[in-house]
Design a protein around this nucleic acid. Structure first.
Lengths: 188, 188
DNA sequence: GCTATTATGTCAGCACTATTGACATATTTT
DNA sequence: AAAATATGTCAATAGTGCTGACATAATAGC
């Protein structure tokens, strides 16, 4: 990960031009009783965690000519069978075109299939084919292992607080939807 | 966030083709003593949390003709003054070309400046200009607020476990570097 | 001092993801 | 019958990332 020591020893003399978060600025916790540094720490950890969390699936995807977007779609389709296009749009928060492209490829290559809803025949319900389920499981494996290992390392009683923290990072207006989505596949 | 109920009521009759994680598959916890569902729950929360975490800065960036990559570079430069190009490469895990493009733009537009290291004159130490520091603070504000709010909602004793969980999601080989990087800006 | 290595920068070209805005179709709702 | 909903499609554009090769400058090792 590199020398880690970002600051050059001459930096002091050279002088850092306007660095955010000096000791002075940090004296007064500006928000929620947390120091800026503590908040920035979580910001950076979130970045690094996410960076590595998607790293392994990305390699598999590349070898298949797919990208990260295919993974996301396949995941939600596989995990939530019968999901609709509209659901995917609001989950992924991307536009119809962006979704259409990857969804079309997944369907053409036999990873996902569409069926008409009987309740409302405008709806196309999405399901993973066996081939799609297999790929989804393959992509999920390193991620599930990583999470299980992280929980083991952090102590299993870290699970609930970590979950609450992540949950509350979500836009308030989306939380109920996320809760329901996950609950459809059991919550706690 | 959408109807949330992914499953169509006719889905049962239609039959989900090969869905991952049925009740049956879930009976036996496959990894680390955690059920698949519990691990998938964190997978999805991580996705949603990250999605919304970067949402607000993205809007600001777009209005400036910048993208997410500019934010990441500006963040690490501003937060870790005197950081080197090599550090950024290993932190971001992108190639030199990808970094060069956004870094050049940030320098040309006066957000970042380079200085020669006196220890080793091959090195270009990076600093945020006052303009860059201001933008960095502007981009960070909604994220810091979001984290502070999430901690408040999850209970402040969630901070340490959440931190440990995220930290342990990072590739083991990178953890020491991340710890040192963050420690350079105080840890606990 | 000479060579190897390190740190950085740069070129051309390509792939994936995402965007906007408009338009088309089928179906359900009012 | 008209309005709203669900989905699909078009063309054009932007941002980010990649590979692989090559160039310069400076430090380190022998």
């Amino acid at each position: 990960m590199a020398p880690a020591n970002a600051r050059d020893k001459s930096g002091q003399a050279g002088g850092g031009a306007a660095a955010t978060g000096s000791a002075r600025e940090n004296a007064a916790p500006p928000a929620g009783g947390q120091s800026r540094d503590r908040l920035f720490e979580l910001t950076e950890l979130l970045f690094f965690a996410y960076r590595d969390f998607i790293g392994e699936p990305d390699e598999i995807l590349t070898s298949l000519g797919f990208g990260r977007a295919h993974h996301r779609v396949l995941h939600f389709v596989s995990r939530h069978p019968g999901i609709r296009v509209a659901n995917l749009l609001s989950i992924l928060k991307i536009t119809k075109q962006s979704l259409a492209r990857v969804l079309r490829q997944l369907i053409e290559e036999g990873y996902v299939e569409q069926r008409e809803s009987r309740e409302d025949r405008r709806r196309r319900l999405l399901y993973a084919t066996p081939k799609g389920a297999e790929l989804a499981a393959h992509l999920a494996a390193p991620q599930l292992r990583r999470i299980a290992d992280a929980l083991a390392a952090a102590g299993d009683n870290a699970r609930a607080p970590a979950r609450e923290f992540l949950y509350n990072l979500i836009n308030e207006s989306d939380r109920a939807g996320v809760r329901a989505l996950i609950a459809g596949k059991r919550m706690d």
